[in-house]
């Protein structure tokens, strides 16, 4: 039970990190959601999907945080905010390739980012993801497809640039 608790809290943390791009804020959000779940633990068995419920809560809190941060800093353009370099110092992300992929995913629109994260990182079924975002399953699939294709495009673009730079160098 405790292991499940810890791994689930990590899941909440990872989703928050994906959306907020700041490990401090993400940890705060995950902790908040965790406390709220704990306070309402009697209601949880009645819910259709407790995990989806928790993810919805996390996402909403993250969106609130982003909104207030945007109001504070007058960052009106979400694209601008997303294009800010992420400040991850994780050793797993040292190499340039995974940095680039990280950037490509974090440059996606918020909905696409959430869907691709829940699917490809956390491995949830489309039905659960649809419930989290309160959209239809078909809609979730379309968003996932777009997200993956955008990421692929970004990766292939990057590769092309790399090759061009390399060939330019050798010539």
């Amino acid at each position: 039970m405790e292991i499940w608790q810890n791994t689930f809290r990590d899941k909440l943390y990872r989703l928050a990190l994906r959306l907020l791009n700041s490990s401090d804020d993400a940890a705060d959000v995950a902790q908040d959601v965790w406390l709220k779940l704990w306070q309402r633990k009697e209601e949880i068995p009645k819910l259709k999907s407790a995990e989806a419920f928790a993810f919805t809560m996390t996402r909403n809190l993250c969106l609130d945080v982003l909104k207030s941060a945007r109001l504070k800093n007058e960052r009106l353009d979400q694209k601008h905010e997303n294009s800010l370099k992420s400040t991850t110092t994780d050793p797993l992300e040292r190499n340039e390739q995974s940095q680039m992929i990280h950037q490509a995913i974090n440059n996606l629109a918020e909905q696409q980012r959430t869907v691709i994260h829940l699917r490809d990182v956390e491995g949830y079924e489309l039905s659960e993801i649809a419930e989290t975002l309160n959209i239809s399953e078909n809609n979730a699939k379309v968003i996932l497809c777009r997200a993956r294709q955008n990421v692929r495009e970004a990766i292939l673009n990057f590769e092309r640039h790399e090759q061009e730079a390399y060939s330019g160098f050798t010539r």
């Binding site: 990590d10 990872r14 940890a27 995950a30 797993l92 990182v121 956390e122 491995g123 990421v151």
Partner: peptide, 13 residues
């Protein structure tokens, strides 16, 4: 891409 996803899923708080 796929190693990135796998690495991400082991990230801990």
């Amino acid at each position: 891409l796929f190693t990135y996803f796998e690495n991400e899923s082991t990230k801990k708080m």
